[in-house]
Design a protein around this nucleic acid. Structure first.
Lengths: 166, 166
DNA sequence: TCAATATTTCAATAAGTATTGAAATATATG
DNA sequence: CATATATTTCAATACTTATTGAAATATTGA
């Protein structure tokens, strides 16, 4: 496969993958483009290479900065902003999971905690409490796990588990 | 909080959570409803309680069976089908991750594997290979991990990690 | 077999999300 | 400060995905 064809396929696949996991396709594609770009790119570059509008490019570049997946870069003698991606896949994984944990997992954990305290002695109330308690337990564990994950932990973690489970 | 209010909140939250992770809101809500229902429910029950159409209910009940998150139940003397949810949260987590792994992770792993073989000695080609190789490595580890996870493994796994990282 | 009832399908439509592009705003440079 | 250039905003629009509901199909049991 040609390098250029490969680059396109990667951008497409990363976009589809993100999209399946509730991450806006353009955002994932902009991220993919920067991931495989050797040099930092400016907004125009992103617009051209992905065929998207200025507004779209701007919006998703900002979102990616927000997620700590890319950073602004200044080029000497250039007025406009350039962007480059974090290339360490462990950091990428950590930043994505942290962001989503904050946005979606934490609110769920908080609600489940409340729901565990629903009063009542009926079989229904008991069953409800058991369910929400178990879910709360699971989500809290996940939450803690992600909270304390650092690159080395994750590496150890996955390696240990992979070996053990092989 | 009243049990009924709590039930509604849970259904809503589970729907929103699923939706943020690329799982159809209705599917997540039907799942939530069955999770907290003491008795198996029929299609009509689901339609009524969630205010959704027959087609929608049917489609999502089928999808949930497909994901092994609920099962059909026959009630003695009843002609129609009833449905009940798997209530073991570890099994729920396993089934969801397995299903998504199959649908989205595996195709990505396959592509990344191909992309690692892109030819060329330019800095660009090298950088591209490094990136896709690292990603392939990460996704493969994840894939293996999920592949071999069973309830007990997951319990051990999360417990060990939680303790270690606390 | 035939009605009654249950389930599935699917074209039409609605709802939700993403994208555009031009105007407004901000910022750098002579 | 004026001008050129870069960035952001946002209402309009396009696109995607979910949902409806009625018709078609399947299933049960008298």
């Amino acid at each position: 496969m040609e390098l250029n064809e490969a680059r396109e396929k990667f951008i497409e696949a990363w976009g589809a993958f993100g999209s399946a996991w509730g991450i806006n396709r353009s955002m994932a594609q902009v991220h993919a483009l920067l991931l495989i770009s050797h040099e930092p790119l400016c907004t125009e570059d992103v617009m051209e290479q992905l065929n998207i509008s200025r507004g779209n490019a701007n919006m998703n570049l900002r979102a990616l900065i927000d997620w700590s997946l890319i950073r602004r870069v200044l080029k000497a003698g250039e007025r406009k902003e350039f962007f480059e991606a974090e290339k360490d896949v462990w950091k990428i994984a950590t930043h994505i999971t942290r962001e989503r944990k904050k946005r979606e997992l934490e609110p769920l954990v908080r609600l489940l905690q409340e729901l565990e305290d629903v009063p009542g002695t009926s079989a229904e109330a008991k069953g409800f409490r058991r369910m929400t308690h178990d879910l709360h337990d699971l989500t809290t564990r996940l939450d803690t796990l992600l909270e304390h994950s650092t690159r080395r932990d994750v590496q150890w973690f996955v390696k240990a588990a992979t070996t053990l489970l092989k």
